[in-house]
Amino acid sequence: MWQIGIVILIISIALFFIGKRFYRQFRQATDPAQQISCGCSCSGCGEASCDSRSIEHDLSKKEK
């Protein structure tokens, strides 16, 4: 019985996750205000802003 409970929980999470992802993809692509990208590609998010971080340390290290 407990196994069925866990399985139902996992399936619900999977449904929610996939549904949300596809819905987001669909909305991003159909949003006329968003001229630039047509959503995240299958290989992940192409926006550089998703991956911004500080280079303060890198730069100072390099110059030394």
Binding site: E47, A48, D51, S52, R53, I55, E56
Partner: peptide
Amino acid sequence: VDHKRGHFTYKDQKVTITD
């Protein structure tokens, strides 16, 4: 083909850079 945006900080100065 698009422009891409990123951020970094240099000596307390925040910079937004677009490729």
